[in-house]
Structure formats: structure tokens, C-alpha cells
Design a protein around this nucleic acid. Structure first.
Lengths: 244, 244
DNA sequence: CATTAAATATCGTCC
DNA sequence: GGACGATGTTTAATG
């Protein structure tokens, strides 16, 4: 059963922008970009400082339901405790959590996390690295630009080999059909726009279907793994540059 | 400071597949598909029954770091408490959480959630609905099949209007350039394969660029919003069918 | 503010 | 188990 004292405390805690953890059994209804229902089960509700609401089940990476910031959440205590959340900007979304039983309720005022995640070895890092080391793309590759805009999208790398223009598409994971179709489009557009052109797909791996499509269209595939490249964490890099 | 008693208890709780919540300040290192570091801040660590590990900060939808199932996590208590997680299948991934201070530690044995999320008004629902109501696509549309396979991907709906073959692409959100290029490719392939063909893009909205591209290629756009369709929750539907 | 594309994407489904 | 595409994707960058 839900303790009435707890339920009255929730709205206070929400108003004070406390971070709130509620371990409970509940049912959930959602309606917005799609609709969902789920029956009774044990879940952890987290209301974060930025109004994000997460409802996590006992397994899985994704919350079973959630509301993104900015959201307004209110607790109502009638027959049972109900948490009602509504998105305060478009698109309209709402979530109702019917709480049957609270196993644990906790709220905190002064939790702080001012650190930013320093993430590297992403596609952006690979792009920057190859822009600085164009010979890794091809011994004769001369860079013209990165994120070069075309009507069909952005070329990761753009340059020349001899007299031919070259578009390069990068993937840090195994390339599939979508990546192959992307570079195919780019190369076709480039050929229509500028004459003969080359396309190079760089990835640590490729699916058979994707490779077949590249072969058919004369697009080159080059195996490269971002993991092995000497990319420093940005913070280290900043620090080193600062110290010089 | 970290209580040594707590740290010795963690491995026991992990071994017993308890669900574990640790509210703490910590730093985190991750290395695997990419790499990341983050400095000291307050975070909630969740170790779920399926070995999923989530580390949530005080804001945001996404965990600041995480490990997907299947993962093996061990707690080591040296100078400080360290949680080390390693993925037990490919790709290799590892995460180290250096815990400085535990604000709350909780573990539970008997939390259960056997319910499945009943999600509707997705693209799949729209596809099924239009397969049953082909006249909504076009008054004379006759369905041949759904998820019809081509070398370039799957056609959401495939059929005929008069003597012409028709490929239909569905989006439940506003269609952009990628969606327009997708239906364009499909129509082009169909024309090369079978002769004259039509393409129809169905979506609740479309970006100007995408619409321009469709016009240029003679592809039709039909505005439709899955929200307004009479799609029942699957559970209701099953129940009704069961009762008949 | 809208558009665009990456993501440690995750997740389900189909082959 | 691999491949493929949707996702209530979320998030960040960019014009």
C-alpha cells in the first residue's frame, strides 16, 4: 500500500527540483508519439533535476517508459497514487503511472554532476584524423574539405586523386546496405556534377550485400579500424596544448 | 568514504543476481566500441537482473555510461571501491567505475516484472492498417504484399493501380530527405525491373527539400497521420478476437 | 528554431 | 546468428 504521507511529499520534492527515486510496483499508460500500456510490475521511477522521468524495469537497457525534458509531473493521491507527466512543449505527450505499492522512496537536493563526458574514437575523430593524415585514405589523396555539402547530404571527406574527384564515406562500425547506398548516391551525384569520380568507403568491416553493391558500382572499400588509431582523449589533448 | 562492509557485500549481491542500486560519487572509464572518461560527480549505478549496468547522472535521458547484457561485473576494494564490468561476448567492452563515496546502497532479490509493453501506433501498425484498408492508399490500390523484398531494401507496401505497379513507403513522423531518397530508389529499381511504376510516400508531414525531390521524380506524397487511425491496443484486439 | 546526421545507439524481426 | 530497419529513438552540431 502507498503511504499517504509519502504521496504528499512527492509534489513538494518535485517543486524543489529534488532528484527522486521511487521503487514501486505500478502500471503505466503512455500516449503521444505512439501509445503504450503495461500491467503491474516492479519498477524504479527516477525524476531527474531537469524534469526527465525514467521508469526502469528489472531488465534491459531502455526504460520501459519515459518522459523527456521539459516535462511537468504531478502526484495525485486518490484511490491510489498516480504520477501524471505531461510534456510542456511539442509534440504533446503524456504518461500516467499508477503506483500500487512503494518499496522505497528517496529524494536528494544536493546531488551534483558538473563533469562532461569525454568521448573519443567516434566517426568525427576518424574524420579529423584522416583529414590530418590523408595518405591513409590513399597514397595520393589530397584533401579538399570535410563535411562537404551536396544536395544529397554531406561528404565526410572530399578531395582528389590525380585529376579525379573523390568522395569518402566513413563508418566506425561494420558498413551495411545503408552506408553502401549512401556512398553510391554521392558518387553518382558527383559524376553527374563534375565528370568522372571515385568513391571510397572506409570501415572496419562490411556486410556481403553492401560489398556486392560497391563492386557492381566500382566503389572502393578500405578496411580501417578507428580503434587502432592514435587518437587522444580530447581533455588530454587540450591539456597538452595548454602546457606548451 | 566507502564502507568496506558494503564493498564486500556487493560481490555477494551480484552473485545472487540481486538488483542493485548504488547512489554515489564516482569517476568512470569506458573502452570498447569507443572510449570515454568522466570526472567526479554524483551518479546512480543500477545493476539489473540481466547483468545490464546503467550509470545515470542527475540529468538527461541516456545513462552517462552503461554496459549491455551479457556483462560480468566485479567489485574490488583496494584504495577505493572499483566496479569493473566486462562484456562477455563480442564486441569486447569494459567499464571501470571508481567509487569515491557511497550515499546509498540497496539490493533486492524478489523484484518481478513479467508484463510486456503493449505498444501501438507505430509504423508497423500503420502498415497493417493500410494492408487491410488499401483504399486509403489510393481508391484503386490493390495490395500485392507487405515488406516486399528488393535488392535495395524492403517495400512497406507493394501493389497495383490499374496496370501499373506501385511501391508505397510509410513514415509515422515527418518525412525528410532520407525517406524521399528511399522511395526514389525503390521506384527507380521497380521501373528498371518491371517497366513503368508509381511511388507513393505516406507520412504526416514532409520537409520542403524532400517534397521538391519527390515532385522532380514524379513521386506522389499523401498526408496521413497514424494518430487518427482506429488502431486498438493489441491486447484489446486479442481479447476481442478471443471472445468471439 | 529547424535541419541534419551520429550513436558505445537499442531493439525486434526475418532470413 | 547475421543483417536490416524502426525507434515514443536521443543527442549534438550547424545554419
Amino acid at each position: 500500500m502507498v503511504n499517504p504521507e509519502v504521496s504528499s511529499r512527492i509534489n513538494q520534492d518535485i517543486a524543489e527540483r529534488k532528484i527522486i527515486f521511487i521503487l514501486c510496483s505500478c502500471t503505466i499508460e503512455y500516449r503521444g508519439r505512439s501509445r503504450s500500456n503495461i500491467g503491474l510490475g516492479h519498477r524504479l521511477i527516477i525524476i531527474k533535476q531537469d524534469t526527465t522521468v525514467l521508469v526502469h524495469s528489472v531488465t534491459g537497457f531502455k526504460p520501459v517508459n519515459w518522459m523527456n525534458t521539459p516535462t511537468e509531473t504531478v502526484a495525485e493521491f486518490g484511490e491510489e497514487l498516480v504520477l501524471y507527466s505531461q510534456r510542456t512543449k511539442k509534440p504533446f505527450e503524456e504518461m500516467k503511472v499508477n503506483v500500487k505499492d512503494i518499496l522505497d522512496y528517496r529524494s536528494y537536493t544536493s546531488l551534483r554532476d558538473d563533469e562532461k563526458l569525454d568521448l573519443t574514437h567516434t566517426e568525427k575523430d576518424l574524420q579529423e584524423y584522416l583529414a590530418k593524415n590523408p595518405a591513409l585514405v590513399h597514397p595520393e589523396f589530397r584533401l579538399i574539405g570535410t563535411e562537404h555539402q551536396s544536395p544529397l547530404g554531406y561528404f565526410d571527406l572530399y578531395g582528389k586523386i590525380g585529376e579525379k574527384y573523390v568522395v569518402v564515406e566513413l563508418k566506425v562500425e561494420r558498413a551495411g546496405l545503408p552506408a553502401a547506398l549512401q556512398i553510391k548516391r554521392y558518387k553518382e551525384w558527383l559524376q553527374g556534377y563534375i565528370g568522372e569520380a571515385r568513391g571510397i568507403l572506409i570501415a572496419p568491416g562490411i556486410t556481403p550485400n553492401a560489398l556486392a553493391l560497391l563492386k557492381k558500382d566500382g566503389i572502393e572499400y578500405k578496411k580501417m579500424n578507428v580503434e587502432h588509431l592514435k587518437i587522444r582523449h580530447r581533455k588530454e589533448k587540450t591539456l597538452r596544448e595548454w602546457l606548451q
